[in-house]
């Protein structure tokens, strides 16, 4: 018996086998192309992520006309920056203010604005988040380290297959002199979901 890769073979479990089967069948039928599949994976692993949404937020903080367009026609305004595609077709941006804090969930599964935020974090897809954010949003926020004053209203928005919400966080105090690029570094993924707030000036946000 020659020395083979057999020890690797036994580790392929059922799900990987099922994916390999359906992929090979769909490729054979010409319904998908291997190069297109590789491009999709590469794009979502490296090019699409919350840094896109952070650029949208920073632009809104520094350009009142853009902000007005963003709040009236989010899909179009976001497309101006080149962020569009699957799960970004019908965007709605909700603005945090001194009196209102917005947060987003998909109560049914995990609808999420991919072009601006990438793929959702594990907790966003979890049943406890999906259920609990509706029942006790302030408790959830507290678990994320965000404690809101009781007089601040919390609004929870339900993203679905037709439209997805993005939160426009409040611009942190002390950032008046900063340009859009520096501001974008303060905008975290969670701030745009509404489970966080933008980082203070001098602190780092999401990559």
């Amino acid at each position: 018996m020659p020395d083979t890769h057999e020890d690797l073979d036994t580790r392929e479990d059922d799900v990987a086998l099922r994916v390999r089967a359906i992929e090979s069948l769909l490729i054979e039928k010409g319904l998908v192309q291997p190069a297109a599949l590789a491009a999709i994976v590469e794009t979502y692993e490296t090019k699409i992520g919350p840094h896109n949404g952070a650029q949208v937020v920073a632009r809104a903080w520094t350009d009142p006309a853009f902000k007005a367009r963003l709040l009236s026609n989010a899909t179009g305004a976001i497309a101006e920056l080149g962020f569009s595609g699957v799960q970004g077709e019908d965007m709605v941006v909700v603005e945090n203010t001194p009196t209102v804090h917005n947060m987003v969930v998909c109560t049914l599964c995990s609808c999420y604005p991919w072009p601006t935020l990438g793929l959702p974090p594990n907790w966003y897809k979890s049943a406890p988040y999906r259920a609990r954010v509706v029942i006790d949003p302030r408790g959830v926020l507290s678990e994320f380290g965000v404690d809101l004053p009781p007089e601040k209203e919390v609004r929870v928005w339900d993203s679905n297959a037709e439209l997805r919400y993005l939160v426009l966080p409040e611009r942190p105090a002390g950032t008046e002199g900063m340009d859009a690029a520096a501001l974008a570094a303060l905008v975290t993924r969670d701030a745009m979901i509404g489970t966080g707030v933008a980082a203070a000036a001098g602190a780092g946000g999401a990559p």
């Binding site: 992929e23 998908v32 192309q33 999709i40 692993e45 840094h51 990438g118 793929l119 990559p207």
Partner: peptide
Amino acid sequence: PSGPVFREPWEAQAFALAVAL
């Protein structure tokens, strides 16, 4: 830290198949 993570290659493959179709 930023969201888009496939923990195993098959997750990425399954994801890409649905998006491509």
